[in-house]
């Protein structure tokens, strides 16, 4: 564990807490893409298949349970909670995410570390996470005005993978046999997808204005 990875995990945790706060405090999920939440639930379930077979540390196990539990809870809330579900922007959240699932799965069948069920699903979850934010970014652009909590959620979600890139650089420099190209390349793509969001987020913060994404 290094400071970059810890910072990344904490930032990721903050993004989940911000989203839970938004949903429970405002009883609304306006501006949040259910499709991105469902993709993230799939990412965590397929990545943590080793949850009960490999014990790495208490921290690792607890965080896995938190991410799986929170992502499923958010999907449940947005689908079935009688108050929250009413504020879901159904007509704006129309990204055809089956494409993302299909491409990620085919890529995982071709590019993986070992051809085992766990490894193929792990690679699938890494590729899927890189593109899982797309429905959310499209929804933010379509809904124009971005409320603070939704903007902060996406900001922290993007920042966490940027910390992980620093973690991979650090591990590459300090550990002889650290080669994890699947995560690194995928993480770079993932962070790059946030680039324009970060730019407009910074502009809105600098001008102390509402976050406006160009349609």
């Amino acid at each position: 564990m290094n400071i970059f990875r810890l910072a990344g995990d904490m930032t990721h945790l903050i993004s989940v807490l911000v989203l839970l706060l938004k949903i429970y405090a405002t009883k609304s999920c306006s501006g949040i893409s259910l499709k991105t939440q469902e993709l993230y639930a799939i990412v965590f379930v397929t990545r943590y298949l080793d949850l009960f077979t490999d014990f790495i540390s208490l921290y690792n196990t607890v965080m896995k349970l938190v991410f799986i539990g929170s992502s499923l809870a958010i999907v449940w809330c947005m689908r079935y909670h009688r108050v929250v579900r009413r504020s879901y922007d159904r007509e704006l959240d129309t990204f055809r995410y089956w494409i993302l699932l299909g491409v990620s799965f085919i890529l995982a069948l071709v590019l993986h570390e070992k051809f085992t069920l766990q490894e193929v699903f792990w690679a699938f979850s890494i590729y899927l996470e890189a593109v899982a934010i797309l429905p959310q970014l499209v929804l933010l652009q379509r809904s124009g005005n971005v409320d603070n909590l939704a903007g902060q959620y996406v900001f922290f979600l993007g920042a966490y993978r940027a910390f992980y890139i620093l973690n991979w650089i650090y591990r590459y420099l300090t550990e002889q046999r650290f080669t994890r190209w699947i995560s690194c390349v995928s993480g770079l793509v993932q962070t790059a997808l946030y680039a324009d969001f970060f730019y407009y987020y910074f502009i809105s913060w600098k001008n102390n204005a509402k976050l406006q994404l160009p349609a």
Partner: peptide, 10 residues
């Protein structure tokens, strides 16, 4: 036990 293919990250 060594974690298969080093998945010690979240």
């Amino acid at each position: 036990d060594t974690v298969p293919s080093g998945h010690d990250e979240l």
